[in-house]
Design a protein around this nucleic acid. Structure first.
Lengths: 110, 110
DNA sequence: TTTTATACATAGATTTCTTATGTATAAAGT
DNA sequence: ACTTTATACATAAGAAATCTATGTATAAAA
């Protein structure tokens, strides 16, 4: 499983999409969920994930709270009201983008 | 048609994919082909395209030649032998990535 | 005792893109 | 006649997003 550089540009949308389908998630959980859903193809690095989460929080798209579980800190993220709207827009854009990419992958030799 | 930031990271692969299906293309032609295939959804800017083409050329993945057509310069790019191999790898990675993205887009609320 | 897993975070470097700018020809619109 | 749009290349400065490396800390497994 190589860290996939294709994720560049879509990580934020992936985070918003996951949080649209889970009432709350913590950082490590997101990395594991992406790994699981991509069948090991996509690895989200911490150096990419945490700054992305902090940025979304700073923009007011995510709300947070912390919990101690098994003596370890967890910082939970959830979509704010504003975040729910932006998530819909961004996910919709990603869907269109995927359709476009598929059109480009279906080419036949000219 | 907004310049799509989702393209980040996949532009190089798109170029290689297009050149896998056209024996040669010039820069402006690539921008138009992407626009056409994406139904206007994806606009490749010149500031992104030309540096990407030059990099691929410097890496030995693309060969070039120029032609004057209608009194205007065209610089044609085509895959080198090495480029053909790399194109296959990169396109295969992109296909896997798209599959992963679809898996993430199909989520249901948990 | 060491490695792996869990869980957060940041700093510096790198890559990649956007925006703006520049040159030049030709066709189309006003 | 003049301006805009299309064609066709290119680069520079800046912004944005990522990777790699590093750091702290607990717990379980090897």
């Amino acid at each position: 499983m190589a860290t996939n550089q294709l994720i560049k540009g879509s990580l934020t949308t992936i985070i918003l999409q996951l949080l649209s389908h889970h009432s709350q998630m913590y950082g490590y959980e997101i990395t594991q969920k992406v790994k699981e859903l991509s069948l090991g193809e996509i690895k989200v690095t911490e150096g990419a994930l945490y700054p992305a989460l902090h940025k979304l929080e700073a923009e007011g798209l995510l709300d947070t709270y912390t919990e101690i579980v098994d003596n370890r800190l967890r910082k939970y993220y959830k979509l704010s009201q504003k975040g729910k709207g932006v998530a819909k827009e961004k996910v919709s854009e990603l869907e269109k983008f995927i359709v476009s990419m598929q059109a480009m992958l279906k080419l036949k030799m000219v």
